[in-house]
Design a protein around this nucleic acid. Structure first.
Lengths: 223, 223
DNA sequence: TTAAATTTTTAGACTAATCTAAAAATTAAT
DNA sequence: ATTAATTTTTAGATTAGTCTAAAAATTTAA
């Protein structure tokens, strides 16, 4: 039986998964160091180790990509993270901006039995409190394509399905201006000068959103 | 702000707490090595470290005892362990014999907010699925009702919490045979003929106690 | 297309936690 | 009360993960 990953290894695998959006994209040593709040030299060492374990593909100076088994591990961790977030919000009454840090710990608990029972307990949710999809027990993700609000043009519309990152300050701001997941949104105007956007939201009427915000909001046609 | 304990440190503190029933009892290096599945040399080093951090009291060759802050930490960990066990059994339908290993991991999750919300979610239980008491947020333990040692049967165990009356002769006798409050006690055999009982006491090994004595000693469920 | 800037890797060192083997201290026994 | 057995500690090494400083490789730009 193959030994399970260390906490550190899991965090690297997860970071590689999250930085590399598509299967093709490479992830640089510096990007990883940045993401994991560590130093490039450290990352360089760990890359060798993970590569040796066949969890990632690696070419000197060329960056890394997850192997099949690496992706599988990443999806397991992400599944756990997002299921625990659902638990924290839906059952322990945490706010959506309070759960990320706790889930960062809970995602490392080892027990597939636990994860699957938790999944059932929660009613097999398909998205987490931030609108991100939850991989199923086989690592399969189901969700239609989404795009950034900042990429939309006038008169385009859709449903707010997620935020790109979980920065608590962003989440709190969205709360304050009543921007919520699931809301229908329509772009009424795009200002070329600063890329700010005017939108019409379900009941809330029109409002302006800066590029800093629109570049973090994910829109899809449906759930 | 004082840095939080490492996983290893937490496990040592917990083991010390669980081996040493009363504030008076010492815990030997070997006992700890045994309990933690490690080597005495390792324990010896860690004892120095924890002692330096004022979490335990330590005298060379004399064993260790938890300090006030050490006990506080231990109770926090035990509280988490037992609350998670309640969650696993009551809400995820685990059997009571399946939850210990998972709780061993969950007990190290750092977030008092999480623990307290979990406590509320579970309905502020006072005992875990194995009947062990759950310390409250202040580390206070609600000790279950005590019963007479003479009412116990084989393999039952608990802690000596009191004597029924204060007959000086009884107390002196108990002193002489080293039976003290706080000691962990386990019934190994009950003799139907005269109701005398054979018990195993924390460090003192086994001894026989007559009905005259057992009918005076109060036992409660252990910590 | 060389020089400059950047990225990545190597080299060497550090800390925490662990081990084995051996020495030292304590306790038990003859 | 010495000797024997046990317990505990020291000494020295090992592994995982990390760091800084410097070297090497690559990319960018003049």
């Amino acid at each position: 039986m193959k030994k399970s990953l260390s906490l550190t290894e899991e965090n690297y695998i997860k970071a590689i998964f999250q930085i590399g959006t598509t299967p093709e994209s490479n992830v640089s040593t510096n990007a990883l160091a940045d993401n994991l709040q560590t130093k490039p030299a450290t990352v360089s060492d760990m890359i060798k180790k993970l590569s040796h374990k066949k969890l990632i593909f690696y070419e000197k100076y060329k960056g890394v990509t997850l192997s099949a088994s690496g992706s599988k591990e990443a999806l397991k961790i992400i599944r756990k993270h997002r299921l625990w977030e659902v638990f924290l919000v839906n059952h322990l009454n945490f706010k959506w901006d309070q759960v990320h840090e706790i889930a960062e710990q809970l995602e490392h608990i080892k027990s597939s039995e636990l994860v699957n029972r938790l999944d059932d307990f929660l009613g097999n949710p398909t998205i987490d409190p931030h609108g991100d999809p939850i991989p199923d027990a086989n690592g399969q993700v189901q969700l239609g394509p989404s795009k950034l609000l900042s990429e939309m043009t006038s008169h385009e519309n859709g449903i707010i399905v997620g935020v790109k990152n979980e920065d608590p300050l962003l989440l709190q701001h969205l709360d304050k201006i009543n921007v919520r997941l699931g809301l229908h949104i329509e772009v009424t105007e795009v200002n070329d000068f600063d890329q700010s956007i005017q939108v019409k939201l379900a009941d809330l009427g029109t409002m302006f959103l800066s590029e800093k915000i629109t570049s973090q909001i994910l829109i899809a046609k449906n759930l």
